[in-house]
Amino acid sequence: MSSLYEQLGGQPAVDAAVDIFYRKVLSDDRISDFFEGVDMDRQIGKQKAFLTMAFGGPHNYTGQDMRNGHAHLVARGLNDSHFDAVAENLSATLQELGVTQDLIDQVMAIAGSTRNDVLGR
């Protein structure tokens, strides 16, 4: 049985997903304010690292990284509704790429596991 990352298509799948995902996030009025003024190249690098992790791929993330990385956003009011909006965009991205529901569910479970760290709880 190959890994989730392999089933999704590995690094090329991350490359294919990142623009679609980030475009959805930037266009989503519920969360776009959090991305106002950020450096796009750096942000896309971070989104790739995040997607690689959510796809079950190799990564170096720790819960503490997630906390530190989002603390300034939590201070600006980042909450469950925003986390849900990002998750929704991720799910829609995978659907757009024709990923099967079974694999989408696995990705969403990994992404969902970061909720408390992202929201600093």
Binding site: Q11, G45, K48, A49, L51, T52, G57, P58, H59, N60
Partner: peptide, 10 residues
């Protein structure tokens, strides 16, 4: 360095 997975480009 950061992701060590060829993704983040750090």
């Amino acid at each position: 360095n950061s992701c060590r997975a060829g993704a983040c480009q750090s």
